[in-house]
Amino acid sequence: MLLDENKSQSGSQGWQPKIIAFFCNWCTYTAADLAGVSRIKHAPNARVIRVMCSGRVDPQFILDSFAKGADGVLVGGCHPGDCHYQEGNYKCLRRFQLFKRVVESFGINKDRLRLEWISASEGDKVRLVINDMVAKVKALGPLSLPKKFSEWDKEMNIIEEKIAGKEEAVHA
């Protein structure tokens, strides 16, 4: 193992949620840069993936993030009417309104998925949103889907043992 997995997941104070953040290049990504230039400190749990527009955020990306172990997914785009490409954020919003229902039906708490409009000048909003989301996801605890998947699959191994046992019996 390259880096002790437990250690790398734990940071300095126990379990730390990991949040994948899809940020639009023109607003929220720029705002996150502004937060940096202004040294606005915030929780270190978000991992930003830059996209040109919130309209590029395919719901599959969000599901894939959860499936691969994200504890939360944050999508940041320009305020309504402000999309650099005019309407991308409306499309994002339309998908989101139904998609969040789907994600909830799949048993994922709604606090784990969030859509925020953050303009290029709102460096402090980046802090507020990330801190708030981290606090909420922390309260929910880990989602750990990869771990859940392997736990679910344990019911399969039982039969494996059974088959193995039987064959041994036959051979004996």
Binding site: S8, S12, K18, G36, V37, I40, K41, H42, R47
Partner: peptide, 26 residues
């Protein structure tokens, strides 16, 4: 982006390093 969106906005060196590693791997 390891300065504006990492070193400049976090105080916890360990967490910051971990984030840098995650994003580097990414």
């Amino acid at each position: 982006n390891t300065r504006e969106q990492n070193a400049w906005v976090h105080l916890d060196a360990l967490a910051s390093t971990e984030k840098a590693i995650d994003l580097a791997r990414s």
